[in-house]
Design a protein around this nucleic acid. Sequence first.
DNA 1: TCCAATGGTTGCATTTTGAAACCAAAGAAG
DNA 2: CTTCTTTGGTTTCAAAATGCAACCATTGGA
Lengths: 147, 147
Amino acid sequence: MAEAETGRGWTDPTCPVARTVDLVGDRWSLLIVRDAMEGPASFTEFRRRLGIARNILSDRLRKLVDHGVLVTSPSGGRHVYELTGAGRDLFTVVVALRQWGERHAFADGEPRSRLTDAEGRPLAELRPRGQDGAPLTAGATRVERVG
Amino acid sequence: MAEAETGRGWTDPTCPVARTVDLVGDRWSLLIVRDAMEGPASFTEFRRRLGIARNILSDRLRKLVDHGVLVTSPSGGRHVYELTGAGRDLFTVVVALRQWGERHAFADGEPRSRLTDAEGRPLAELRPRGQDGAPLTAGATRVERVG
DNA sequence: TCCAATGGTTGCATTTTGAAACCAAAGAAG
DNA sequence: CTTCTTTGGTTTCAAAATGCAACCATTGGA
């Protein structure tokens, strides 16, 4: 039943937002991807860092592999999970979630982890922009519906 | 029990990514926010567009209001839900999810909705960048852990 | 040969989800 | 003022997802 949603079963088949949520929008997948951004990791490493139940982790890793987000090398003893190109491409989503959380999910002064460049400087804030580079609010955009 | 996670109960209290996932990372909240981006909407409008169960929609709307993502005007007969500033700020997250879905969640030629500017042109692709504007991959960044 | 570590799977109880039925308030229709 | 429809829910209950604990299989030493 890991493949049950490949053909139909999408929440909203024509919406790319809904498809992404269907694939990685549960409580754990994006946190697994977040940790995988720091490098290949084993089942046990994910488990220690996330405090996730074993069977849930097993299920999520299998689904992420099925969906082409992770690959695993089934060599002896110790499996290592690593992001694919599609998985690394989720970096933008993770950063967007992180920046929103920094702005809206903490009280002033609460301790929080930070994402920086190699020299310890914070990243620029992500912002939707037009092809000309001008920032766009939601009101300045339109969804072209296909149906 | 809508407030049970305010004090503790976070999946990973110091991580802004995890906090955001705790707040809006279920199967429906981000789709509600996505639709709310197109303008204020009523309970019934959300229900028709999403095909969501009534009680789940009721619960999610209440939580999103509690979390400061939506506001509702409890005037007669018909409630209207509208994004707050924090809610509109989720636009970046929605666009990031949409762009990833466009790249990785469709087979070639499958019909899909598109997001454009007011003139029908596609948006620029979101990319994490340093303060100097240079694109950054995950490998070129670090998470400063606080614990 | 035994033993510990890794990478899981299998119950089973709890929680979340969802479909359908029910309820209440506000207009509109008569 | 009474009835009917629309809107905005709540309640109920079955099914699915979740998580804890126990168990199993393979690998690689001591």
